[in-house]
Each structure stands twice: as C-alpha cells, then as structure tokens.
Design a protein around this nucleic acid. Structure first.
Length: 293
DNA sequence: CCACGGCCTGATTC
DNA sequence: AGAATCAGGCCGT
C-alpha cells in the first residue's frame, strides 16, 4: 500500500474537476473519492489544500497524481490568456480552479465513443459494467475493483458482452476501435505526439465511432492537446447564443471558431464554457422527481 | 461541404 | 399512462 501527499495549488477545484464529465470512474465514498490512476485503484482524500492518495500502486504515486490532475498548469496565466470577453471571464471566475485532466488515452477513447447521443450517468454505468465484465480484477481495502480492460481484451470480446454493458449501437464501434488499437493500426502514443490537426484526423479516420468531437475529447482529456475544442450540443448552443447572437452555427464552424478565437488554450475555454452552461458538476445520481401531487 | 434519418436506451416531457 | 423527445455523435446517403 502506497501513500502520497500532495499540496494542491491555489486554485484547484478538485470535485468540480473529477465530476466535470471528463472522467467517468470517480465515485464519492464518504469523505473520499475513489477511482483509478494509471488504471490502478486509489482513494483520494482532501484536507484543505492537502491531498492524500492511497492505493496499492506500482510506480511513482505522487508523480502519477500530479500528472493526472495537471497541478502544474499555470491557471493564472491561462485565465489571463482566455479573458477575452465578459462571458468567458465570468465562467473562469465562477469555476476558478477547474482543471483539465491527463487521462489514459485508450480508456478515454472508449469512454467517449460510448458518450455519443448518451448522457453522463449512463456512460458511467456502461463503463463500470465493461470493467466488471472484462477488466482485470484488483483488490483495494478488501473491496473488488476492476481495471479498465486492455485493447486486445476488448477486441476479443464478443458483441453480446458489450451489448450487455448497454453500449447499444456503439458496441460495434467500441469493438472495432479496440481492434484497431490492439492490432497497431492506430498507435495512440504516436497520435499523442502528432500536431493537433493531424492527431484528430488520424483518430477520426482510424477508429470507428470516432468523429471530430470524440477525437477532440481524447486529444484534450488524455493527450494534453490544449488547443483542441470539442463541440458538443452544449458548447454549440452556448457559442451560438453568446457569440453569434443566436444564429445557427454548424459544429465544424463552431470548432474552427473556438480554436481561432481562444487560441492555444481553447480546450480550457471549452471546459469552462461547458461547465458554465451546464451549471456545474454532474450530480452523482439523477435528480429525483418531485411528487406530482 | 451541408442536411437528414437512423441508431440502443433510459430519463424526462408532453 | 403512453407517446414523443432528448442525450456530451457518428455513419451512410
């Protein structure tokens, strides 16, 4: 069992970040949050600015947390760079400390293939089921934890298993994309070293179920391509309303506009606009409906 | 290049 | 109550 203590920089909005919809496997457990770093189960506890991470971890745990949470991002500089108008300034001020993450590329790819025309709680459920049925079993504090399956394991899985995870029509995309990665037709480590445009193109052309939006999410949330600008319905809507006076904007134009307007930190702008538009982090369980009578 | 319908599925809305 | 509609899109036409 390893243990690492990390001093969080100011500002760092830990829960807003972990539950902002970039990552799907963190869960609150009492005062702690449980999830995975480098696909190994850990528990994270925050006391003030101090972050304690525990887990049966192979490798440099402190380095892994710091890298994952991107604690060295110069938020002050980022906010200054992005502060081009009242809208984005309001968003960065309100959600100050919200960070991008540096996640595992393959897991992120599969997760965002699963995200298409879906919603966050459902994506999280599907991913959890996937890990339970195909992921390596690990133990953590006497509890079972399941790592995210490898590409080759996923590629060999039969479609029925994936359907069982409620991926719906995305199941065949996931299997196909996993095969492309497992067979080396798409080398995610190599993609991560490409310039953003070529990296995005490579993902879209090489992986079924990956279009511009999903590819941009992988680039932004797992490959440190901070100039990527994923355009989903929320971002498209708020860009239309806030920057185009309500005029309709196609996703492609919206992406080009965002990258041009916000520049090298466009990805951070997207994250704050998205968060602002949705009104904060995702609730861990869906809101219960008020009784009708 | 853009527009459109179809796709699994569960939650919400009408 | 049961039917549409919508959800962090993508694919084929």
């Amino acid at each position: 069992m390893q243990r690492a203590v990390l001093e969080l920089p100011e500002p760092y909005a830990l829960e807003e970040t972990l539950f902002s919809g970039q990552a799907f496997r963190w869960a609150r457990h009492g005062r702690s949050v449980e999830g995975f770093l480098e696909n190994q189960p850990v528990r994270v506890t925050r006391r003030g600015r101090s972050l304690t991470v525990r887990g049966r971890f192979e490798g440099d745990l402190e380095g892994a947390v710091a890298a994952y949470l991107r604690v060295s991002d110069p938020m002050g500089q980022i906010y200054r760079d992005l502060g081009k108008d009242a809208r984005i300034r309001a968003a960065t001020e309100r959600w100050s400390g919200l960070h991008l993450l540096a996640q595992q590329p393959f897991e992120t790819t599969v997760s965002f293939i699963a995200s298409s025309a879906s919603n966050i709680p459902k994506i999280a459920r599907s991913i959890e089921k996937l890990c339970r049925s195909l992921g390596e079993k690990k133990t953590f504090d006497g509890r079972r934890a399941h790592a995210f399956p490898t590409a080759s394991r996923l590629a060999r899985a039969d479609l029925a298993t994936l359907r069982g995870c409620e991926f719906g029509y995305r199941a065949r995309y996931i299997k196909s994309a996993a095969r492309a990665v497992a067979e080396g037709q798409v080398d995610l480590d190599r993609v991560a070293r490409m310039p953003t445009d070529r990296a995005q193109e490579t993902l879209v052309e090489g992986l079924d179920g990956v279009g511009p939006k999903v590819a941009a999410c992988v680039l932004l949330f797992a490959m440190g391509k901070d100039d990527a600008f994923p355009v989903d319905r929320w971002v498209q809507r708020c860009v239309s309303e806030w920057y185009f006076d309500g005029a309709r904007v196609t996703p492609k134009r919206c992406e080009a506009w965002g990258r041009e307007y916000f520049g090298p930190r466009a990805g951070y702008a997207q994250q704050y606009l998205f968060h602002e538009r949705r009104g904060g982090r995702v609730r861990s369980r869906p809101a219960s409906r008020a009784p009708s009578g």
